[in-house]
């Protein structure tokens, strides 16, 4: 990964040297993934919807520019930014040290916490998981969290996709799942999750979600931060939050 990051940093450096452009005032191109419900996804008619999209739209309104969304696969989303395919990434991206070497982040616009999900009648106690089987998606912070905090006697099962972990929770192969609480919230609201509930307190791993811009694009960064502060102050943010989650996620 370090090489990859180094390559990204190299690209960023070149971008810095060759051009330092303020973005055009009239439109702002925003990169997003479109495969991360309920934050960004494609509805049946092909339109982008979700919390990220709504936030971006609200920011553009405040900045008095027009949002143009560009869809990009997750793996290529930072290279796409550096290649000037778009000027900002609003795609539920966690602010990490690795990424900060390649891009700059705005202030966080929501924070992610982890939470256990288990069957309502199972009486799973996160403080005593001895002999329990816990599922998580491979290569996520939930998986690393489980590995870094060996819960006395609990067995960890790792899944390729979050959906498969939920399937096994529903079939009873795992006793509990550790996942992003916001993603789990969406599942619990669905029909399949009706016999399941959050257990224990949210685990704060300090995961903050921000908007990424090219390094050195300080003008855009400042404008986005100002707009973000504005929508938080005037209640727009709260409104959007309530549209998706009945609890504050900031």
């Amino acid at each position: 990964m370090s090489l990859k990051t180094a390559a990204l940093a190299a690209v960023a450096a070149i971008v810095l040297l060759t051009a330092s452009g303020p973005t055009r005032a009239e439109t702002l191109r925003i990169g997003t993934e479109g495969a991360y419900p309920p934050f960004n996804q494609i509805d049946p008619s092909g339109e982008l919807i979700g919390f990220d999209i709504d936030i971006a739209q609200a920011l553009c309104d405040k900045m008095n520019v027009e949002c143009v969304f560009v869809r990009q696969d997750w793996d290529g989303i930072i290279p796409g930014l550096l290649a000037r395919k778009y000027d900002a990434i609003v795609a539920s991206m966690s602010i990490t040290e690795d990424r900060q070497q390649a891009v700059d982040f705005t202030d966080p616009y929501y924070s992610n916490k982890l939470r256990f999900v288990a069957a309502k009648n199972a009486k799973v106690d996160p403080d005593n998981l001895k002999g329990k089987v816990i599922g998580a998606q491979r290569a996520t912070i939930s998986a690393s969290y489980l590995e870094d905090h060996p819960f006395k006697g609990a067995k960890v099962k790792l899944y390729d996709t979050q959906e498969n972990a939920y399937l096994d929770l529903a079939s009873g192969r795992v006793d509990a799942i550790l996942a992003d609480r916001l993603v789990s919230y969406d599942w619990l609201e669905s029909d399949a999750g009706k016999n399941f509930a959050f257990v224990g307190e949210p685990i704060d791993i300090g995961d903050k979600i921000g908007i990424a811009v090219r390094k050195g694009d300080t003008k855009l960064l400042a404008r986005l931060n100002a707009a973000l502060a504005e929508i938080i102050a005037d209640g727009t943010y709260e409104e959007l939050n309530a549209k998706y989650f009945p609890f504050p996620i900031y």
Binding site: M1, S144, E147
Partner: peptide, 10 residues
């Protein structure tokens, strides 16, 4: 191998 890679990024 896949689990180790998720941790080591190698």
């Amino acid at each position: 191998a896949r689990t180790i890679i998720a941790r080591t990024y190698m």
